[in-house]
Design a binder for these strands. Structure first.
Lengths: 201, 201
DNA sequence: AAATAGCCTTAATCCAGATCAATGTTTTTT
DNA sequence: AAAAAACATTGATCTGGATTAAGGCTATTT
């Protein structure tokens, strides 16, 4: 009998297959270890202070990974839409209370695996060591690009780059979210936009 | 016959062994694939525009990974001293011209492996998929901590944290280097230090 | 349909850190 | 040992972006 969860594992199988082709047994393993979960808009997948229990793959929707600093300001480290991973890796691996939060900006479906099931997966099929190595490499490269950007460009340049890199996100996110991603206040982002609109004429 | 290079692979064997114990054959593989190289102070291991050919492990000395922005300002992403890894991962994997530079701040000995030898290592001993997965996880966590820090703290707080995290580096680096790591000018770092000296009394 | 809360913009003022400049100090090179 | 280069400090001035505040707009909620 095929249930809803079985069907929705497909995007993840496709994703892994694109990295390294999987055998039938490996596909079965994935089906047994990853479980789908729905987060409604504004629901938390992880709250600051809790341990991050899951490695999440977004099938549909959009989530954000962020921190809130001492002054209450939000800083978004990463958005995750279709086919992206999202978790607090430090908390997940070290079982530390998370410094980061994850919540849904839209109704979002994820496929997720627990830490112990992931370890079990590595033991049963060492190919997943390789797959997750590659996956981490990609994740690291994205994060490093972002750091280089934060270091070396002005808020306006960062916004321009955001528009070029994530055109599909522009209409899905409020300016409050985009500002928190760029590392500026919403007021200043508004100013950037009006400045750009003027000089575009 | 045992030569100098053989002897110096030991720190790397120790490092891997601490992550996951190695068999004799795996140790031999390491010895055949990693080669030591000496960089004199100020010598480049990677220059912006070239492809990053090596995955480097620092045995002795100190290197920095940095970028130079359009205005000629230096931004240091990472220092690597004894038992740290240093490379431009994006350039190494994608064979893109590097945006980053690596050079030696002291006379430095590294053990390094080429991209094709690393792929060969993964094929001959899948345990290295796991070892490098863990290694990348650690590298990612360090980088993310740094990003969170850059986002949410003032220059003075970042300097305090630098002192706590890397006390052994304070006397090995000039303030110019530390300032480029913190993301401020040397002038402003000097100011922070004098401010802190005053309030300590 | 009204009420409430969140979103976006504009303007006035403020501040952390940059820039420019001058001077002294330490290190490296010759 | 002298000269050159890099490093460190201090002061005056400037600026990108924050903060505060107010008004209009747009979604949810009731």
């Amino acid at each position: 009998m095929t249930d809803v969860a079985d069907v929705s594992v497909q995007p993840l199988l496709d994703y892994f297959n694109r990295l390294i082709p999987l055998s039938t047994e490996e596909k079965e393993l994935i089906k047994s270890k990853f479980h789908s979960h729905l987060f409604l808009k504004k629901q938390f997948a992880l709250q600051h202070g809790d341990v991050c229990e899951y490695f999440n793959f977004v099938v549909r929707g959009c989530m954000r990974l962020y921190m809130v600093d001492d002054k209450g300001v939000y800083h978004i480290l990463q958005f995750a839409t279709e086919n992206y991973w999202i978790l607090d890796l430090t908390s997940f691996h070290k079982k530390f209370p998370a410094k980061l939060n994850i919540d849904a900006l839209e109704d979002t479906v994820v496929l997720r695996i627990t830490h112990s099931d992931l370890l079990d997966l590595y033991i049963r099929a060492p190919k997943f060591d390789r797959i997750f190595r590659v996956l981490l490499e990609n994740h690291f490269m994205l994060q490093q690009q972002r750091m280089v950007q934060l270091f070396s460009s002005t808020a306006e340049e960062r916004y321009q780059l955001f528009l070029e890199t994530y055109p599909h996100l522009l209409n899905r996110l409020s300016q409050v979210q985009i500002a928190a991603y760029l590392g500026v206040t919403p007021e200043f982002l508004s100013r950037i936009r009006s400045r750009m609109a003027k000089s575009d004429k």
